[in-house]
Structure formats: C-alpha cells, structure tokens
C-alpha cells in the first residue's frame, strides 16, 4: 500500500530537533534510516502525523574510542558498522552481526539507533549490545540519560525511551572478551527463528561474566540469567555447556510464530548454545 498522508520535517541539530518535536507533540515520529518504519507505513499499521528526520544531525554520527569505551553514534548505518576498524577491534561481535542483518541495500540505510529503538525481538543488534553490556546514551530536551542495555528493552517493541527522547549513541566498555553470534534463519538475511549473541571472558581457565543473549525467542533480547550463571566460574567444557543448555529452559518463554511452536525455539536455542560455546573451545581444549 501507499504510505498514508503525513508531514515531514528535518532537524539540522539537536536543539533544532527539540523545537521541532515540541511543535508537533505526540504527532511526531522520529525517522532515521527508515528501513523498518517505512515498511510498516506501507502496511498502514500506523499513521504518524509528521515524520521528523534526524539523519542530518551531526551530533548523532561518528565512531570513537575514549575513556575506556567504544562510542557508536546512533546514525551509524549497519554497513558502516560492518566495515569500521574500531568496531572490528573492540566489538567484533557487532562486525560479525552485520552480515546477518537483512541485505546490502538495507544495511546501507538502516542505523544502529533505529534498530535499537524499534526493538524487534528477532533483531541482532539489540541482543549484541546486551551481550556486550553496553550503555544506551539517550538525548532529549531534558538532557542526556545513560541506560544499561539490559534495562533498555522493556517489552515487545518497547524501550525505556521517553516521549521526545532519542538514542544518541551506544557505548561499549572496552574489555578483552570472547564473543560470537549465531542464528538459525530460513534464508540468508531473514529474521532469525532463534539466535544467540554471547560474550564472556576466560580467566585462569574459568568463565567470567558470561552473557548469553537470545533473540527471536521472546519479547526482546533475552539475557539468559540461569544459563549464564551455569557457566560462571566453571571451566568451559562439555559438562558446563550441558549445564548451560539444561538451565536455559527456565530462561526462555518463546512465543509461537509462523516457523513453529515455542518448543522448537527452545530446542533451537539449546542447539545454538552448544554450537556457540563449543566454538569458544580451542582445539587443545576440545582434545583435553
């Protein structure tokens, strides 16, 4: 279908944005890359009064490292994220996630801020930033807020953003960690039937601060507390992996969807748990 009739305004800066938002009130709908929003408008699922384009606000751009964090501006497009050297060095989980997101033409427009704000439960980036224990930096006329990623996603397509508030950046603490992302999708680029973004450290042969975050299996990214706890402080081996898989059952409450029942998503999550964690074992550890 054609998009509904609507207004359009473009903000040139954050101060400009606050005045545009004040002018349009609840009729305003922020648009960045638009790769999800504009598709939903074609379903006429929503009819925003005015789209407020933030893509030319310079404060929301850029990728930098300082004070122990990797800062990724909200307007960073998926394609930029995928080829950025700083991201590859400090958050290779994100680099690995990018090829799983849709297709090249979508990745050229879609932004990390947009992906996080839309909070699709099957999307890769929300799960990744929870796994990386990132902080979502928000901005509004009232000023900046810093929200831990694990608290940012509140429910299906819901976030901790207040009306009039936008995502400005994501900050990822610099740390030596192992990370990986795997998903099961019907076709390349499809939303996953189930996916896992995982990050952990191995110190002295023991797993430290494991964060197993599942996507496509709940109302948002699911940080599996019990499965992660089953690994904490243990050697990463067949027994601890099996323990994580066993503990996972209580962490997940997947919905039914077109691909299959909750039981299938649980099953796939267990399979991914094994595959991702086994991937962290180096050959000598496997032999041992």
């Amino acid at each position: 279908m054609k998009w509904p009739a609507m207004g359009y305004a473009r903000a040139a800066s954050l101060p400009d944005l606050w005045s545009v938002l004040a002018q349009h009130g609840s009729a305003a709908q922020i648009i960045a890359g638009g790769q999800t929003l504009l598709a939903t408008l074609a379903f006429r699922l929503s009819e925003p009064g005015t789209l407020v384009d933030i893509t030319r606000i310079p404060e929301l751009r850029g990728i930098s490292v300082s004070s122990g964090v990797l800062r990724i501006g909200a307007l960073t497009r998926h394609a930029e994220l995928g080829r950025d050297a700083l991201v590859a060095r400090h958050a290779p989980l994100l680099t690995a996630a990018v090829p799983l997101i849709a297709h090249p033409a979508i990745r050229n427009r879609g932004t990390i801020g947009g992906s996080l704000a839309y909070a699709d439960p099957a999307a890769e980036l929300p799960a990744c930033i929870v796994a990386l224990d990132a902080v979502v930096v928000t901005a509004s006329a009232a000023g900046e807020r810093r929200i831990p990623a694990r608290d940012f996603f509140t429910d299906l397509l819901q976030t901790a953003l207040n009306p009039g508030e936008i995502i400005a950046a994501v900050e990822i603490p610099l740390a030596e960690r192992r990370s990986a992302i795997q998903e099961v999708a019907r076709r390349s680029g499809d939303y996953a039937m189930a996916g896992l973004a995982a990050a952990l450290r191995i110190e002295g042969g023991r797993v430290v601060a494991p964060r197993l975050v599942y996507f496509g299996v709940g109302t948002g990214p699911v940080l599996a507390a019990r499965a992660s706890a089953a690994l904490e402080g243990r050697a990463l081996d067949a027994a601890s992996i099996a323990a994580a898989q066993a503990a996972l059952g209580e962490d997940l409450d997947p919905p039914q969807d077109l691909h299959g029942p909750p039981e299938m998503k649980r099953h796939l999550a267990r399979v991914l748990t094994g595959r991702v964690l086994n991937g962290f074992l180096n050959p000598s550890e496997i032999a041992a």
């Binding site: 359009y8 790769q35 504009l38 090249p104 033409a105 979508i106 427009r109």
Partner: peptide, 13 residues
C-alpha cells in the same frame, strides 16, 4: 553512491 531500496526512502528526504 550506495544501493538502497527505493521503496524505503522518502523522496522528501
């Protein structure tokens, strides 16, 4: 210079 989905781009932008 980059490929995009024309149906997901606002002409106004």
């Amino acid at each position: 210079g980059e490929i995009v989905r024309g149906c997901l781009v606002l002409a106004a932008s």
